[in-house]
């Protein structure tokens, strides 16, 4: 697979993954660019990569962490983004209630839920992207999923 084809196939996935975490369009575009620049440097090996989606998202994840550390948005911790307001979300565009529910989860659980249900990633791929043991991903997914279902159910009953 050549670089342009790879970009066409995964640009939206990477952009969405980054945006979901940083909630800033311009920062997301910058990070997308940096991610694909890193991909370009390795584009000779694209054909040999087993799970291209997990691979490119793990690069994006590293870029996000590096960028946030460098720019010192806040002293960075994985939970620091949980308190940030959703500045760029238009009520017309997304389900605000669901965003609010997701925001109640810790940052890692939120990314895991996003990865499973939106990007259809496996636990193994998520473990690779987030640099966590697969068992941790699985148990975090289990508890986050249970919480979300409980909250959604409570909303249905209100």
């Amino acid at each position: 697979m050549n670089f342009k084809k790879f970009y066409t196939l995964y640009a939206d996935t990477v952009y969405s993954f980054i945006y979901f975490k940083v909630k800033d369009r311009f920062l997301a575009e910058d990070l997308l660019q940096e991610t694909f620049l890193a991909v370009y440097k390795n584009h000779g090996n694209l054909a040999t990569i087993r799970s291209p989606k997990a691979w490119v998202l793990s690069i994006a994840q590293r870029k996000i962490v590096d960028k946030l550390r460098k720019e010192k948005h806040q002293p960075f911790s994985t939970d620091s983004l949980a308190e940030q307001p959703f500045t760029e979300i238009s009520p017309m565009e997304t389900n605000l209630f669901l965003e609010e529910l997701l925001n109640r989860l810790d940052e890692t659980s939120r990314q895991i839920i996003y990865g499973i249900y939106v990007e259809q990633l496996s636990y193994k791929e998520l473990a690779e992207i987030l640099n966590l043991p697969e068992g941790t991903v699985k148990s975090k997914a289990y508890y986050a999923r249970a919480k979300l279902k409980r909250w959604l159910e409570a909303d249905k009953n209100d």
């Binding site: 066409t8 939206d12 952009y15 969405s16 979901f20 575009e29 389900n95 669901l98 939106v118 959604l152």
Partner: peptide, 18 residues
């Protein structure tokens, strides 16, 4: 419920970044 969370770029935006 989670599907609308997915974001997409416009073709022009994608092309510009490429």
């Amino acid at each position: 419920e989670l599907q609308p969370v997915k974001r997409k770029m416009s073709a022009a935006q994608k092309e510009h970044i490429l």
